[in-house]
């Protein structure tokens, strides 16, 4: 029972001496950073921001229009309120 854990310790001692393969990630890192930093200026982001602004403007006009559609007599009653009795 104890032996297996002891063997694991011995295996680990040998495994620790293993060197990782040599790699060069500098180019990839700088490329990724540039891509992520440039996200706000990318054509896709410009399109997304433009679409969001347009949607906001449409919403601002359509909400009062929608309210008048759901209550078609509302403006009439509003007008009659100004008639002196």
């Amino acid at each position: 029972m104890h032996d297996l854990l002891h063997e694991l310790d011995q295996l680990a001692a040998l495994a620790r001496r293993e060197a990782a393969p040599e790699i060069d990630v500098l180019g990839g890192v700088l490329h990724d950073i540039r891509v992520r930093e440039g996200d706000f200026g990318s054509p896709v982001m410009v399109l997304v921001i433009g679409a969001a602004l347009a949607a906001g403007v449409i919403m601002a006009f359509s909400i009062p229009l929608y309210q008048s559609l759901t209550d078609p007599l509302g403006p009439l009653f509003q007008m009659t309120q100004n008639i002196p009795l």
Binding site: L8, L11, A12, L14, A15, R16, R17, E18, A19
Partner: peptide, 15 residues
């Protein structure tokens, strides 16, 4: 029994 570090590393990683 693993004799070289890479074998040991492979074995331990698998476990």
């Amino acid at each position: 029994k693993p004799k070289v570090p890479s074998e040991a590393g492979e074995r331990l990683f698998g476990m």
